[in-house]
Design a protein around this nucleic acid. Sequence first.
DNA 1: TGTTATGATGTTAGCGCTAACATAATGTTA
DNA 2: TAACATTATGTTAGCGCTAACATCATAACA
Lengths: 341, 341
Amino acid sequence: MRKRKGAGRPTISDVAAKAGVSTITVSRALRDPSKVSDHLRRKINNAVRKLNYVPHSHASALASTRSNIIGVIVPSLTNNVFADTLRAIYDELYQGAFQVQLGNSRYVAADEERLVRTFLSQGPSAMIVAGTDQTDATRELLLNAQCPVVQIMEVGDDPIDMMVGFSHFEGGKAAGMHLLKKGYKRIGFLGARMDPRSHRRLEGFVEAMRLGGRYEPDLVMTTTASSSVSLGSELIGQLRKRDPDLDAIFCNNDDLALGALFGCQKAGISVPDELGIVGFNDLEMMAASHPSLTSIRTDRYAIGKRAVEMIKAELEGNPPEEKVVDLGFELQERESTLRTR
Amino acid sequence: MRKRKGAGRPTISDVAAKAGVSTITVSRALRDPSKVSDHLRRKINNAVRKLNYVPHSHASALASTRSNIIGVIVPSLTNNVFADTLRAIYDELYQGAFQVQLGNSRYVAADEERLVRTFLSQGPSAMIVAGTDQTDATRELLLNAQCPVVQIMEVGDDPIDMMVGFSHFEGGKAAGMHLLKKGYKRIGFLGARMDPRSHRRLEGFVEAMRLGGRYEPDLVMTTTASSSVSLGSELIGQLRKRDPDLDAIFCNNDDLALGALFGCQKAGISVPDELGIVGFNDLEMMAASHPSLTSIRTDRYAIGKRAVEMIKAELEGNPPEEKVVDLGFELQERESTLRTR
DNA sequence: TGTTATGATGTTAGCGCTAACATAATGTTA
DNA sequence: TAACATTATGTTAGCGCTAACATCATAACA
């Protein structure tokens, strides 16, 4: 006999037979219950429960050319910033029938392009990608994708489709302005990784320094090495060697800021009196350290949540009015910039 | 006309037509090139390239009842411990044709069960789940799954299929023994979240204390709240209030340890002289802090890497000899337990 | 030289689901 | 009450791929 065996699980036909209806009616009852009478719907739900029926998502995707996958591509899995956003996405998608497909582009644009290609080949229900710096090809792919696309973490003026984030330029500028306001004179910048968003934070910082007449290119220290607490500790040492009069720094991110604090403690430099420190993102630890660390608070969780809300709205036929949502940031002023003298 | 339109992308038939062969030959050339002659393989590869053909994974999964998905379920996305392991899994799977499907069980066994059910319904190529504390139903599902299953982060004596991790009991015990060896007398335990692995670390710690004749139930402070640096700072204050003679603590994890250090600094308690601190996992920051923090180093990256290697071996028909791999841990002794008096 | 093993390719029939059309049952309007 | 919408359900034919079997060519062997 030439039968193929299948997966051995109940299929939609089994449910249909049990409920005494056709398969399409079961299909409708499951996807859009309003299209089926109460009477049949009840019978079908009973059959589903009794058989413990779980739809075969691949068959559904093949027949409808649309999968229940929401593709998410982030540049890092270990960066807490994305972890918070991811958590929000997962939390928000927890109830529904969507599956998250997570890709890690490792901060490489070509890898992102490859992932987008792979994900789109599965006919996702939506795509979420980090940042606004896609390659032309990636952009093109996403523009032609037959699904909502949200760029997260950052805002800009030419969204592929939708955007949720904040301005890293303004964030960097706010950090710089704060240090100026506190009366610091020789203000440095510590940057690791230096992805496009880091660059824009630096640009904002430079803008602030220029406005305050304090821009000093030599005080900008960046590396492509990936960020870490140890690195912050090391870099602050190097920068102080380069310029002993340095009296404040803005760090690319909170890991570096914490590392800079440790570096100062090791070298016997008092924070904030001898050196002011500002971080970026305001991770939880910033409030707990001693002294506590000033940072630019960004709401990563809200970004993920909002992105999913926009996608859901779009899929339900209520496209959001605002395609670009700027969730802003907030300066969290703490002891590390609270001079006592 | 009654045609359905499909996804509009080239299909295997297009490739077959272009190469002048049948579809099954294309299918074979792509999945197991050794089954097709050099001559045809070359023609097929050319056609694939020219048409920019990407297989429709849903169709493949439907026809073969086996998808290219590797399901991974972790209890947290924000815990650095899992982030490192996840990164390894992604790195290791980067080349091949597998897709990672990541689930977040949020430390809830019932959620894990639900995810396992969903993932298995897609006929994954393999499953990776964190820990050894699945519900009976989850265990049953995974036992019956027609794919390799790896339990990660921990080892035990009754693997569902395979295991890669280390003994949390022994880790906790090693931390306790170290503090005893350093001459600390009133040694406490700080624990947050208290998932099963945390419990076993506590049990190991208690065992060490008993062996040293220093077990003091009152010095064990745990909470179900999720772990954070701030929490560590808070808990150490509470525990010292409860017992002012406390002279060392073992923290459930590094976040708490760092928080405890901050708490001590705020309260003017010198580490390590007045209070010794040991953390768990040895995240990168532990070496950078001032004073640097002693911790139990665990190789999370290696766990993920090894898990994928075992899966690949299994899928290629070379089942690994050792089904349970204990990657151990290593005490990293640093300043926080280096008494000077 | 005929018989059999081996390898390369093809034919056919689904995998489980849903789009597209068809039909039956009911309500609405003049 | 005829004519037409509207709603509820069904029939049919794929979506794109691969398992299972079939066929043909070539090599291997007695």
